[in-house]
Nucleic acid binder design. Structure first.
Lengths: 204, 204
DNA sequence: ATGCTAAGCGGGGTAAAGTCCGTTTATGCT
DNA sequence: AGCATAAACGGACTTTACCCCGCTTAGCAT
């Protein structure tokens, strides 16, 4: 008759030392990234600087890419909150077209800010499902569904895939990324053409 | 007064043994890929099986990704010929919209066939300009230009980038890729939604 | 033919990702 | 407190991409 409170409260919570070490590793990784860039973050170096074993690093994050994914997750979650419950047109309340445009306009600077880490978080040894498919595709799919496009249903899925690619892939793999921000930068152009893309897809 | 023929004929052509070894390496790589998949092709294994030194492999191809790029180049060139001088609507002769649609419908099965090698050919240690940006983006850009869209000129560039991403990225990074071909496969769906995408972008 | 030279060759060496398994320790129970 | 146990830890080990540099050889000129 024990464990009276919390009937199913995680029977085996994460151990305290594990939590401490994970945070320490993330903090150390962030420091190494701001000092020398993501390319210089090695598993050995990270473990040594955090004064932990290499085995621990892999236990926590699974792979090198996993570290960067974990680093992104924080900011990604904040971004997602804006989308799910922030003010319109990014959050709910605007119509689907406006939300799609707003999503791209917010997402592009986000990826621009994080593109070094986001690139490092890609793991092309895995098929592709595991890594950061993320929230963009489901969100776009949902908005396409709400818009009532005059296309067969299964096409909505592949349209969502392709629009996701149009939005994210340029910053992940096609662009060199070495320019100052500004209205002439490619970020601004991509935002503009994203809007054109969305407007034309929605008004078929 | 010698070298009478060929005034500027490549003063230093590729050496015969180098040519022989390159072809031998490509052949061996192809064999290893069909036997065990691209993931199992290691530089040591390739060198040993081709009975050459590891240094030779790197001299010829620069990196692991370089091998797969070289392997793709053959087929890529054949594909490009169809686009540049084949029959319409893929080749010249049809209007821009028809050519864009035809390009995607031809490109998707091509990438599907080669996706294992294409993925292996991506090198995400380099910024992104070096590797396979390829011919798709310029071709799409050209067709967009011909179509006379009612958008500011610089937007044509970023639209081309985004349409390229919409066409190629799904097969390079978002799709898991383990299904039988057929009208229900994602290849067919992607072709259909590519057509929708193009039609709506062109008819603004 | 023969010698010169630049290109090609080869394999040992380094660095970094990822694995394994014996050791240590936090946590819950008595 | 003392114990049992599952989880966490750590670092040696393996694998693989990529570098380096002395040796060999093709291609050319005499």
């Amino acid at each position: 008759m024990n464990t009276p409170v919390v009937p199913f409260g995680k029977p085996r919570g994460e151990r305290a030392d594990a939590v401490r070490n994970r945070e320490r590793l993330l903090e150390t990784a962030r420091a190494m990234i701001t000092e020398h860039g993501p390319g210089k973050v090695t598993m050995d170096g990270l473990a040594e600087r955090a004064e932990l074993g290499k085995g621990t690093v892999f236990r926590r994050f699974g792979s090198r890419a996993g570290i960067f994914r974990a680093l992104l997750d924080d900011d990604e979650r904040r971004f997602q909150e804006q989308v799910l419950s922030g003010p319109p047109p990014l959050g709910p309340g605007a119509d689907a077209e406006q939300r799609l445009i707003a999503y791209g306009r917010a997402r592009i600077p986000f990826l621009l800010d994080h593109h070094a880490i986001a690139r490092a978080a890609m793991d092309h040894t895995q098929p592709a499902s595991e890594d950061g498919v993320g929230m963009t595709q489901p969100h776009i799919r949902m908005l396409l569904g709400q818009a009532g496009l005059l296309v067969p249903l299964p096409l909505l899925d592949s349209l969502a895939v392709q629009l996701t690619a149009a939005l994210e892939a340029p910053l992940l793999l096609y662009l060199s990324m070495d320019e100052a921000p500004g209205p002439s930068g490619s970020a601004h152009l991509l935002s503009e053409s994203w809007q054109v893309l969305v407007e034309r897809v929605m008004r078929g």
